[in-house]
Design a binder for these strands. Structure first.
Lengths: 201, 201
DNA sequence: AGTCCACCTTACTCAGAGTAAGTTACTGAC
DNA sequence: GTCAGTAACTTACTCTGAGTAAGGTGGACT
């Protein structure tokens, strides 16, 4: 038997779980949800397939766990960024910049979040929407902190609007390497804060 | 043999194709892409499975055909709506309203467009992005018609921004029946044209 | 009244999600 | 030590559904 390389087997539940998620993140983001196979993930983890089902119940469940993970990282980054903001505009700008930096630097996590769409129309769809609320709630809170609201519905809509716009712009950025996070932020803030009206002929 | 009910068989290629797309639209939008089965679609069409493959090559291909169809309808509606616009703001408002009316009235087509996301990471992903360009190009053209541009990249980004924002807001609207297309349009134009700056404390 | 080909079918293969039932190594108690 | 007891793990399946090979059939047009 090898000296140092322990026969990595029988690890505690929590550790194994983390490890599985880590591997699954890689496979899902590399191959895409549909093309990824549970057999492959199991093999890379070094464990048999029923283990994955023991921990996550289904392929969807595994992806959901990965998504939750990535969302948590994004939320963390956004909260950090907006913490010391001096006002509404500043907070929004910091948050948006944090997002565009995130998608450029944490490619894998972002790829995962893009694949969450693959769960539309499945039983897990509601839970996916739930994780999205991490973003929209953050924005909505920021809104009602810094804006005169009164209209709850309007604030919610605005938050969805911002998140949707940024996500689409992020996908667009993938095709445009030359657009830096700072540039993307400027484009975003320009429309978002000042409005398109300013550019009208 | 029945008298009136003709044994609907052997129909010309183009007709059969239309019929298949029609059925597939229903099944995909009802069950979702993943849960829909080619066997079921074939049976509902009243034809055997290899026919579907003869016409569309793959399940993805069939969905893609459905998506193209729905996108075409949406584009048509948007073009009609913006045709008689008096200026930039009016054109944008008409386009946005047409979109929100579309998603409320053509549920099935909209459901299909939402499911296009299921193709992310598959070989058909590029072609899906292509169909999206029907929307963004329309907006981008509208932009450069009515705005002082100079910056091509900026215009493209703005178009992506608008489309992304509207799509997300549309999904939000599904959870809020009380929000009429007119209301959604007002929310959208408020941010889009005047900017969030106007509401800052 | 035959011939051709577009349209269509039966009857498969095969990959991959999900599972039933049994096995092994670690933990603590005596 | 050694003997439960159980948490971690495996082998060896089933079953659904995408995709296909090979061959049948009816109607249009000589």
């Amino acid at each position: 038997m090898p000296v140092t390389t322990a026969k990595r087997k029988r690890m505690p539940r929590a550790d194994r779980m983390r490890q599985m998620i880590e591997v699954a993140e890689q496979v899902f983001s590399a191959r895409g949800y549909a093309a990824a196979s549970m057999d492959e993930i199991a093999e890379l983890v070094g464990v048999s397939k029923p283990m994955l089902y023991e921990y996550f119940n289904s392929k969807e469940g595994l992806l959901l766990a990965c998504i939750r993970q990535s969302r948590a990282v994004l939320r963390e980054a956004t909260e950090q960024a907006t913490a010391g903001a001096t006002g509404a505009e500043d907070a929004l700008r910091r948050g948006v910049l944090a997002f565009f930096v995130f998608i450029r630097e944490r490619r894998q996590a972002w790829s995962l979040l893009r694949h969450e769409m693959a769960l539309i129309g499945t039983p897990a769809a509601d839970e996916v929407e739930e994780t999205r609320r991490q973003q929209t709630d953050l924005i909505a809170a920021l809104m009602s902190d810094h804006f005169d609201s009164g209209d709850e519905l309007r604030a919610e809509a605005a938050a969805e609007f911002v998140v949707g716009a940024c996500e689409r712009l992020a996908i667009w950025c993938e095709r445009h390497e030359e657009v830096s996070p700072e540039m993307a932020t400027r484009y975003t803030m320009d429309v978002l804060w000042a409005g398109l009206g300013q550019h009208a002929r």
